[in-house]
Amino acid sequence: MNVLMTGVGGQGIILASDMLSEVMMRYGYDVKKSEIHGMAQRGGSVMSHVRFSEQVASPLIPLKGCDILLSFEELETARYVPYLKDDAQVIINRFRLAPPSVISGARQYPDIIPFIQERTQRIHLVDGSSIAEEMGNPRGVNIILLGTLSTLLEPDEALWIDCINTMLKEKIRPMNIEGFKKGRQVQIH
């Protein structure tokens, strides 16, 4: 199983992919995860590859190899369409962050849904950012989206909660567990 997480530097993608990896390791799979840190992080496009199965060789998901794309930002979903398998599941957080050429007025923010529909119809729009705002924790969008993603995967809720408890500091656990559960309630089937 290949899960690709995409978005913009600073959205909490690395922590979300760390948690997915930890859960899948504890569930019993071999897991590999790969992403880029450093210069690319500064407001740039970010993606994290998470792969789990009996045995994983390459840490990178091949083109047309992604089973689930979890995207934190709309435009960043479209950028990784070449990775999608036919009929891949795509979870898109309804959130737009204008890139520099749109900010300067040189280009329009594109409607990305048709680009994704060329590869798959299994597209789920999720109001992760709005839910996070309502909860008073705008930075918690990653855990909400992880909650939604978790409904497509084998491990049960208890294992996820257990990993949140071991990976996060005590002070921020309750808020993150609440966010995770809110994300799980989002209907995407």
């Binding site: 210069m39 496009s45 520099p100 923010y109």
Partner: peptide, 16 residues
């Protein structure tokens, strides 16, 4: 055979 990639607005890293 890689699928078609549309010409999307780039998102290079930038100063904060």
């Amino acid at each position: 055979h890689s699928p078609v990639q549309h010409a999307l607005p780039g998102r290079p890293p930038s100063m904060c």
